[in-house]
Design a protein around this nucleic acid. Sequence first.
RNA 1: GGGGCCGUAGCUCAAUUGGUUAGAGUACCAGACUGUCGAUCUGGAUGUUGCGGGUUCGAGUCCCGUCGGCCUCGCCA
Length: 587
Amino acid sequence: MSKLKRTHTCGQLRTKDIKTTVNLSGWVNSVRDHGGLIFIDLRDRYGITQVVFNPDKGKNLYETAQQLRHEYVVAIQGTVSARPAGTTNPNLDTGEIEVYADTIEILNKSETPPFEIGNESNVSLELRLKHRYLDLRRPIMQKRLIFRHKICQTIREYFDRLNFVDIETPVLTKSTPEGARDYLVPSRINLGKFYALPQSPQLFKQILMVAGYDRYFQIVRCFRDEDLRAQRQPEFTQMDMEMSFVDENDIIQVIEGLMAIIFNKVIGKKIATPFPRISYKEAMTSYGCDAPDLRFGMKIKDISDIVKTSSFKVFLDVIKSGGQIRGLNATGCSNYSRKDIDDLTAFVGQFGAKGLAWFKVEETGLTSSITKFFSAEILEKIKQRMDAKSGDLLLFVADKPKVVCQSLAQLRLHLGHKNKLIDANTFNFSWVVDFPLFDYNEDLKRYEALHHPFTSPHPDNLPFMEERPLEVKARAYDLVLNGVELGGGSIRIHTPEVQKRVFRLLGINDENAYKKFGFLLDALKYGAPPHGGIALGIDRMVTLLSQLDDIREVIAFPKTQKATCLMTDAPSEVDAEQLKELGIRLV
RNA sequence: GGGGCCGUAGCUCAAUUGGUUAGAGUACCAGACUGUCGAUCUGGAUGUUGCGGGUUCGAGUCCCGUCGGCCUCGCCA
């Protein structure tokens, strides 16, 4: 260890410290060698301080200073001095002062780094991930991870104050059907058997409610073995909580309070609560998705009823086969060229839409290559339905509801960004509520849980659950921020009877249910209190609050799109001996 | 599993319809310089054009394959 134990950080010294002797430690950010005078910027995570080396202070000192290069780690001792008039640096918090070095110790040298440790990063993500220790050394990355820490710390303080208990749940647990693909871990002691890494601690937190803990929370890692996206990593972090003796509003209130305090303490902003609530049906009808971005309008409208009397075969065929015609008003976009519209058509094509019908709104009325199929009366009705004014462009998709929803939802976002309708500085929270409990999977020909199989049906719907499953409402709620699902939760089923009924509807017979979820069904038998909770994606939350769009920017060691770690080279092959012990043979 | 974009000096990029010795900025190295702070000035060194094959008189450029990174559809209760 250095004899020069640091007394201050590199972001700390001010004019009031002038004439004191200090020790600083840090990384050499830059060297400016004037021959007879050497300046270095010394950096640590608190800031940058300029250190001056003068040959008058001794030959050894000066010769050592001449050896300094980028990212050398040094400790110096020196005197804090006012900078001469005209040489202060307003860009540095410490720019009024500098430290005249008396002693320097090179604690470690550094090879020339593969990229510069500045705030500007033109460097490829690939290189950043490979040398993540250097990337994370950049002030901007340190700021992001510290920001994340502060959010997590605020969450912990908040829940602690409300009497929640932080309880750890297993990482080696049981593989369950449905949901995402599990990451599996072979068991050496039980050859041929596997643990799964948790997709979430869902069942454990419910069990904790049965155990009487009443209020649980955890900031916890979750794992899902699915393909990656900019917003999706195979391992991610959730703020997970569960409460007993509550209804939807209790959970919602606690989370609104949490978000308000995070904004207040971490960002210094006030946000209005309660957050608006929008039904799943309204979200799908007006925005085409269950996590609508409410920062701008451009709502989706249905014109199926209007155009069913037209002679446009494309529309008529779609209606006949149970589809719909919906569209949106691209306000002020009637100047779009043929190519612009072709591009939009290609855009919706990737979501399954076979085409994009369009009308330009002009003073004289609607113009398009397909107006001849529509009577003047129909065109007028379309214009009214779409609130169209001269200069607008109306875009329609005709297809199955699912395709229409997805392509219009994406088109709406696309146009919102393209036409700069979205204020990037607003934080728009909302709750999406009144979800259906079940969804019908056409491919598998069976019902699936929209949320998860432990979500409570609305009690009023229990009598007809088996007869009309799709009409059953779930006691579920999703928190949406700027069009991104931050998380979701529900009031859970707390009786074995209802839980078994839901399993049966999902095609899980009692025998299988016991095999997979017996511990839950058993637990529900022994006095399970009514309970519910929610989980929020921390990575997404931090990303959005940092106004970034890639969760890798707020995760210290993220994986690539192929789910590898470029720094450690995980996953990697293992010794034949290791496989043998596990009873595993590669095929 | 499908579709798309990208890969040239340590880094970020350029290189005309395929054309002669693959360049620039920056970083790096050396020298000069006592008030710089993106220091400056002078000089220098730096390439398996990801890899393999093909087309061609000639390939960084075109084609096929492969590896890697990214975006996306499916997938993600």
